[in-house]
Design a binder for these strands. Structure first.
Length: 451
RNA sequence: GCCCCCUUCGUCUAGCCCGGUCCAGGACACCUCGUUUUCACUGAGGUAACUGGGGUUCGAAUCCCCAAGGGGGCGCCA
């Protein structure tokens, strides 16, 4: 049997990190098993449905590299994939239940009739009398949580009085119609599952396998990540120039651990290793620092050409470079800079001194200058003559620093920090002699004199 | 209030199923130190956890029970 999983978002105008991970786990499972990944849009709530909202989801899915085998823009044999276009089908399925006596109309809405003894009870919490049903508990063999038993004790609405079906109903009806084999969804749906199982039972259909994955909690404070928390929306990472592969990699780590313990790894490897039984049972707190770390690691290991092709437009839009700066030049620069880079977001500040004299100067780096080599201005005066007459290769530059150190009874490295600051405005960065080589003698001397 | 799920370093986790190899391992963060090539690098080191209580057992992070804590659900939202 071919695995068929689905991600069924509701287009509400944003793409939540929790939804992204649910989508990701479904996608990974489909790719791991060679099954089908289906995208179904749950837009039954007409109030909140719009073309623009849908676009947010599709764009984020694309950005994270999750492609679907059936759904919007690609079609499939089980469509339509928009629930707003399936209303007739839902009405038909409702009639089926009504004919079986498992659905009835009350107050203009349609209710699912549970099977069991009924009694009127006053509910303290709701503050009114309700009809309770002693229905048999629904037993779920969850792939992640094991056996979970829960009984529904009240009939519930499956079709609203305004003629629209409710989530529980369409969810099950479509899972049946689309022949979904595995439902991978957030643990917040665990309590809903007894309702869903009741609907499957009413239709006389064997339910799919379920896997309820843990939730993502706020970094600090109580509760799950909400759309208002920093880092909750995928578009934020896009804007901050995170690598989509790194975000995806981190998302995988929230609720799942690679077997060999290696955390930064290519998606092909994750697909190969991914098993539902390895998904954790407990919720995880979101930690952006760790995600930033994974982003940095991924960035540094990118092939040079890829890195340059990513960096080029960023530097251009930040007006650090113009069309005069060639790809060859960028290749030279990033040959020594890439391994030191932390993020694409801050790349312009990090490398601007290579391309412009208007680079920013880090006050903290300036404050640190006297720590090792004493008065920076004095050091620059001492090294200047040596650099003025130096042949411009790293070997010769190295010799110049050593010789100057010797002449003044100093360590050659006493000159590094002042020179670095004078030419780059920073306290760290790429290999210093490499920077000098790439900047060229004229620029270096000018900046040293200008200190 | 009722129902369901969960509980190992600050955080993410390994180990738990098949009790001894765990005075609990890794990663992020943090701290310290090293570097005649600086660091937003790299190397070395460090602080830090089995929620509590009862059992079972020669022996429990691992099995059982209870409590506490955390999370979720209880809509004519999805």
């Amino acid at each position: 049997m071919t695995v068929r999983v689905r991600f069924a978002p509701s287009p509400t105008g944003f793409f939540h990190i929790g939804s992204a991970r649910t989508a990701l786990f479904n996608w990974l499972y489909a790719r791991h098993t060679g099954g089908k990944f289906i995208l179904r849009i749950e837009d039954t709530d007409k109030e909140r449905n719009s073309e623009a909202f849908l676009k947010v989801i599709l764009d984020s899915m694309h950005w994270l590299g999750m492609d679907w085998d059936e759904g919007p823009n690609v079609g499939g044999n089980y469509g339509p994939y928009f629930q707003s276009q399936r209303t007739d089908f839902y009405r038909q399925k409702l009639q089926e239940l009504a004919a079986k006596g498992r659905a009835y109309e009350k107050d203009g809405a349609w209710w699912l009739r549970l099977e069991g003894a009924r009694s009127k009870v006053f509910d303290d919490h709701l503050g009114r009398e309700i009809e309770k049903v002693e229905a048999a508990p629904m037993v779920l063999d969850d792939l992640i949580r094991g056996r979970v038993e829960r009984a529904e004790d009240r009939d519930f609405v499956i079709f609203r009085s305004n003629g629209e079906p409710v989530f529980h109903f369409v969810n099950v009806v479509d899972d049946i119609a689309m022949q979904i084999t595995h439902v991978i969804r957030g643990e917040d749906h665990l309590s809903n599952t007894s309702k869903h199982l009741e609907i499957f039972k009413a239709f006389g259909v064997t339910p799919p396998a379920y896997a309820h994955i843990p939730l993502i909690l706020k970094t600090d404070g109580p509760g799950k990540m909400s759309k208002r928390d920093r880092g909750a929306l995928i578009e934020e990472y896009q804007q901050r120039r995170y690598l989509p592969g790194a975000v995806r990699n981190y998302l995988c780590l929230l609720g799942w651990t690679p077997a060999n313990g290696q955390e930064v790894l290519p998606i092909e490897e994750i697909i190969r290793q991914f098993e539902l039984k390895d998904i954790h049972q407990s919720n995880a707190r979101f930690d952006e620092r760790k995600m930033a770390h994974i982003n940095t690691q991924t960035l540094r290991h990118l092939p040079r050409e890829t890195f340059v092709s990513l960096a080029q437009p960023i530097l251009k839009s930040a007006q650090v470079i113009d069309d005069q700066v060639t790809t060859e030049r960028l290749n030279e620069v990033f040959a020594i800079v890439q391994e030191k880079v932390n993020s694409l977001e801050h790349l312009p500040e990090f490398v601007s001194y290579f391309f412009t004299d208007q680079f920013t100067k880090d006050p903290a780096a300036l404050a640190n200058l006297t720590k090792k080599g004493g008065d920076p201005a004095a050091r620059l005066c001492e090294i200047l003559p040596a650099l003025e007459t130096c042949a411009w290769t790293e070997t010769d530059l190295d010799a110049a620093f050593t010789a100057t150190g010797l002449a003044h009874q100093r360590k050659a490295t006493d000159y590094f920090a002042p020179v670095r600051y004078a030419v780059s405005g920073q306290g760290g960065g790429a290999h210093l002699l490499g920077i000098l080589r790439l900047l060229g003698q004229a620029k270096v001397l000018a900046r040293l004199r200008a200190f």
